Simulated assay, not measured.
Amino acid sequence: FRATSIFWGGAAGFGLTAGVLYFLREYILYMVKAGHIAVLVELMDGRSIPEGRPQIEYATQVVRDRFGAANVLFAVDQLVKGVLAAITGIVQGVAALVPIPGLQQFIGIIRAFLRIAVGFVDEVILAYAIRTRADNPWAAAKTALVLYGQNYPAMLKNAAWLTIITYVLAFLVFLVMLAPAAAVVWVLPGAWSAGGFVFAILFAWAVKVALIEPFAIACMMQVYFQAIEGQEPDPVWEGRLSAASKKFNQLKDRASSWIGHKPSGEEGPAAPSTPPA
């Protein structure tokens, strides 16, 4: 009876937490994810956070200046993820034309990795809008996606490797934490036999999200900004994305109809030579 109660209690708690996170996803993306990207962009460009101002407050203001509201940021992020999926499809289609034995299987493996790595790459696209101090987030995302597409060999390779490294490190953390987690469960009254395993998983996942993923995102941002340095969007790639992705066309439509807002200040990083749109 106790095991059954624990199971259903845990399942109910997990479901409730997942539901709350689902409904708060816009706020979480706006306050945490994008703010984190804004701070990373500042540090990568050699800029420091203004003295006497909390880091979270400054990062939130930078994001608000670029996107205006959480719902805009969330909508941009969702369209970006859809276009990234289309880019991997284009790459797989090109590979199908190359008569190399086993190439399709290899591309299929890479695509599976990239489905997991989209969470890294879409943050890089958002970073472009922040770094270029774009007034039109839709146009900035469109330009960033075209630049990503025309540099796909380097980006896909790094995304795949970083995904592997991220999960390998998380698995190592899980193995390291098995023994202490089991010890903690053992000393608890009415110890649960599977508790050590569950606690080790939770700790490994927390370390992955808090430490490993930010490192991977910073690496992806560095590779991306180095790859696009001095480049202009290729009309050929824009045409490919328009033909392959409805979400890219939605992005273009919203970029054209964007009225915009007046930023509260221009404290963000200096814009690089590549125009945002």
Rank of each mutant, 00 (worst) to 15 (best):
F1D: 13
I6M: 10
I6Y: 06
W8F: 10
A11H: 14
F14G: 13
G15A: 11
A18L: 15
L21T: 15
L24D: 09
L29T: 09
V32F: 13
A34R: 07
H36I: 11
L40H: 01
V41D: 02
V41H: 01
E42L: 15
L43I: 13
M44R: 13
D45R: 14
E51V: 12
G52I: 11
Q55R: 15
Q55D: 10
V62L: 08
V62P: 00
V63L: 05
V63I: 02
D65Y: 04
D65K: 02
R66I: 04
G68M: 04
G68R: 02
A69D: 12
F74V: 05
L79T: 09
G82W: 08
V83S: 01
V83K: 00
T88W: 06
G89D: 05
V94L: 05
V98Q: 07
V98Y: 14
V98L: 14
P101C: 10
P101V: 14
G102L: 13
Q104H: 14
I110H: 04
I110V: 14
R111S: 13
A112D: 15
A112G: 15
L114R: 03
V118S: 05
F120Y: 12
V121M: 12
E123D: 13
V124I: 11
L126E: 07
L126D: 05
A127R: 04
A127K: 05
A129E: 01
A134V: 15
A134I: 13
N136Q: 03
A141C: 02
T143K: 07
V146K: 00
V146C: 01
G149M: 10
Q150A: 10
A154V: 08
N158G: 06
T163Y: 08
I165L: 00
T166R: 03
Y167R: 01
L172Y: 04
V173L: 04
F174Y: 06
A179Y: 14
A179H: 09
A183P: 00
W186L: 11
L188T: 08
W192I: 12
G195Y: 06
F199I: 13
F203D: 03
A204S: 05
W205E: 03
E213V: 03
F215P: 00
A216K: 01
C219D: 11
M220H: 00
M220T: 01
M220Q: 02
Y224P: 08
F225V: 14
E229D: 13
Q231F: 06
P233K: 09
P233T: 08
D234P: 01
V236S: 07
W237N: 14
L241N: 00
S242M: 15
A244P: 15
A244E: 09
K246V: 11
K247F: 12
Q250W: 15
L251D: 10
L251E: 12
D253E: 13
R254S: 13
W258F: 14
W258N: 09
G260W: 06
G260Y: 04
H261M: 07
P263L: 10
P263C: 07
P263K: 02
P263W: 04
S264K: 02
E267I: 01
P269R: 05
P269C: 03
P275L: 06
P275F: 06
P275T: 11
P276C: 10
P276N: 15
A277Q: 03
A277N: 09
